[in-house]
């Protein structure tokens, strides 16, 4: 009796917790609201199965509890029932899978009008690089990383000259414009994750990974690293700020190009040389 009742109450409690606990996802800030929809769909289907099976178990435990004089039914199998259940499950599973695959297809297909932003991860922090006026990101190689060239751009590549280097952990993106994040790491695996954006992808040394999204509301969001990367993993935070066009332009204007940065550091070097000579 107690056992049946507790299984019953656990089920009810789980449902209650689901609907009335304060813990739920953050308000979505990108076009990936349809990921939330797939989650909800999954919740409805699996939730129904969970409740049905738990109630069934509770019922059995209550109804068929041991009596000395009673005998259990002798029934090794029931082909019809089994095949019906199999088909029902297969259909349920297919209903989950199909929308999942559709959304995944969107997730891995970057729209042509998406503009690019490089997210640059290192142990343990974030930097960003924008393609500049030509819309192209210059080639890089970690061999060239040094104080004057923190992103390791290949100086000979003309595409890199006008790249805007954001040597800070804060990135601005445009509202309602699809953006493709090109993800690069110079050391271990990381993962660029903003809970409100829903998207996620590991960054792998040696290759450039990517994902895309369209921010849908203005706001200030926290970036978290979602792939374990060593002792500082939990502290590897950054910020993404979604702007309207006007604010974005203001921010963009403040960023320096690679060329300017090189020139500046050369000046510094010269200054230092002059100082030394004196």
């Amino acid at each position: 009796m107690i056992v049946a009742l507790s299984i019953f109450l656990i089920t009810i409690g789980s449902i209650a917790f689901h609907f009335w606990s304060p813990w739920w996802w953050t308000e979505v800030a990108s076009n990936w609201g349809n990921m939330d929809d797939t989650i909800l769909l999954t919740f409805w289907i699996t939730g129904a199965v969970f409740v049905a099976i738990c109630f069934f178990v509770a019922y059995c435990v209550w109804k068929f509890s041991y009596k000395k004089e009673r005998r259990a039914e002798y029934k090794p199998e029931d082909k019809k029932l089994e095949s019906r259940l199999t088909w029902a499950t297969a259909i349920g599973v297919a209903a989950l899978l199909a929308p999942g695959l559709v959304v995944w297809n969107q997730y891995v297909t970057v729209p042509e009008n998406a503009y690019k932003v490089e997210v640059f991860a290192y142990q343990w922090g974030w930097k960003y690089r924008l393609p500049g006026e030509d819309g192209k990101l210059g080639k890089t190689d970690i061999k060239y990383i040094n104080d004057d060239n923190p992103f390791g751009l290949i100086i000979e590549d003309p595409n890199g000259k006008d790249d805007l280097l954001v040597d800070a952990d804060e990135l601005h993106v445009l509202k309602d414009r699809p953006v493709k994040f090109e993800l690069r790491t110079i050391d271990v695996l990381h993962n660029f994750y903003v809970p409100q954006f829903r998207g996620k992808m590991d960054m792998v040394p040696g290759i450039i990974t990517y994902y895309w999204l369209t921010p849908t509301r203005v706001g200030d969001f926290e970036v978290l690293c979602a792939e374990y990367c060593g002792t500082g993993h939990y502290a590897m935070r950054g910020r993404v700020i979604v702007d309207e066009e006007k604010d974005y332009k203001k921010w963009e204007a403040k960023q320096v190009t690679f060329e300017k940065m090189l020139a500046k550091s050369k000046e510094n070097d010269n200054l230092q040389l002059v100082k030394k000579e004196k």
Binding site: I7, I10, W32, T38, I39, V57, G100, K200
Partner: peptide
């Protein structure tokens, strides 16, 4: 065994979330 059925059922069903690519994206590594 009854405890197993309840917990396994629960864990198995959340597996359907994580196994289904798209649903996994927001949930993976959390």
């Amino acid at each position: 065994s009854l405890g197993f059925i309840v917990t396994f059922l629960n864990g198995g069903l959340t597996g359907l979330f994580l196994g289904n690519v798209t649903v996994d994206v927001p949930l993976s590594d959390t």
